[in-house]
Amino acid sequence: MSSLLLTPPTGSTAGRLAEAAAVDAAGPRKRRLADRITRLVETATTPLLPADYLDLVAPLRAGADLRGRVVSVEPETADAATIVIKPGADWAGHVPGQYVRIGVDVEGVRHWRAYSLTHGPRRDGLISVTVKAVPDGKVSNHLVHRTQRGTMVHLEQAAGEFVLPADEHGVTPESHRRLLFVTAGSGVTPVVGMLRNLFPSTDSGVLRPARSQELDIVVVHVAPTQPDSIFLRDLQALDAAGAISLLARYDDEHGVLDVDALGQLVPDLDDRTTYACGPGGLLAALEAHHAAKGLPLQTEQFRAATVVAGEGGTVHVAGQEIEADGATTVLDAAESAGVLMPSGCRMGICMGCVLPLKEGAVRDLRTGEVTAADAMTGPMNIQTCISAAAGACHLDH
């Protein structure tokens, strides 16, 4: 029988089915061929992977670990600088007031720190953070004094709730149009990001877009001395343009800010929504003051809070909150609550129970040593089979 008799007429239903079957049959062959090519390339590049070589030539490409290249380091004060970064293709953007966690390799060890973004979305796609070098700060001193143009850093996506509410057009709701910003030291950085977005600066001066016309903003900015005041020129320019009313307070001139006297500085304090960022002591005083008066307040702490370790606490894992005492391991407490935890301990497989501690503190029951994590330090891997809650702790699982 002629093979032509076995070939369905072109364009017929039978013909289309035959073509589809041929494609389906070829699919597995193509996949096997691709798998063989991949294995061949991986063998040729061992011990590295092909992606490792791509990282050398295109580290900011889509699909790679999120990184950024330092474009410039711009001094702000003697111990502070703005780091301008070109983020990788997978950077998802941010809302003014949010922060980004940056991973920096110092002496062969990768350290993560969180820094507020100091601007709104930029047309050039760049991002920037302003870092103040703190005494004995390994990462901050490295970024301010030793980072050079072209340096690669690791990034995470922007996060944080210290943002102004806005509709789809960027217009602030009426309830947040009379604002008070209280900032201290480098706590001004997220606020500057908000203000730059609300009132862009150009060569012709500060602009007041229609979406910002109805805003009435007072900024109480505190610094040890005027030379130590980060972004003072920006704040003064906004004040001169009538975009904000600036009340600058310097410890060496005015003394330490008395929160209880804030109403004297800002007579219409009761009519404003307050956003505050600065050291923990200032924020605690503001929280007590505003709570007593029933005033709205949103805060952001720019330095890591001191974790006070206790005996036991609430373990947050897999969407559950589990109360655990100081003598029960996180692993046992979670499993007793019905959480399926990774573990090979009982089969003699060590390190199978390791999970990232995102926030809080745990105590090593063998040594008594406390491990603490927060947004500044980044997640810390812990062994849940030997660690007990030392206060509230949040695990990534």
Rank of each mutant, 00 (worst) to 15 (best):
L4M: 12
T10E: 13
T13H: 14
A18N: 06
A25R: 13
A26E: 08
P28I: 13
R32F: 11
V41I: 15
E42V: 03
T45F: 13
A51M: 14
D55H: 11
P59T: 10
L60A: 01
R67C: 08
G68K: 05
R69M: 15
D79M: 04
T82A: 13
I85R: 03
D90E: 12
G93V: 04
V95E: 13
R101L: 04
I102A: 06
G103P: 01
H111D: 05
L126I: 01
S128Q: 05
L143N: 07
L143W: 10
H145L: 09
V153L: 15
F162Q: 10
G170Q: 12
R178T: 08
R178Q: 15
L179S: 06
A184L: 06
G187E: 05
G187F: 03
V192H: 03
G193C: 12
L198S: 03
S201W: 04
A210I: 08
A210W: 14
R233L: 15
A237S: 08
D239R: 11
A248S: 12
D252V: 14
H254R: 15
V256S: 10
A261K: 08
G263Y: 11
L265E: 04
P267S: 04
A276Q: 00
L283I: 13
L286N: 07
A288K: 10
K293N: 07
G319Q: 08
G338L: 13
E359D: 12
G360K: 02
V362Y: 12
D364K: 07
Q383H: 02
H394G: 00
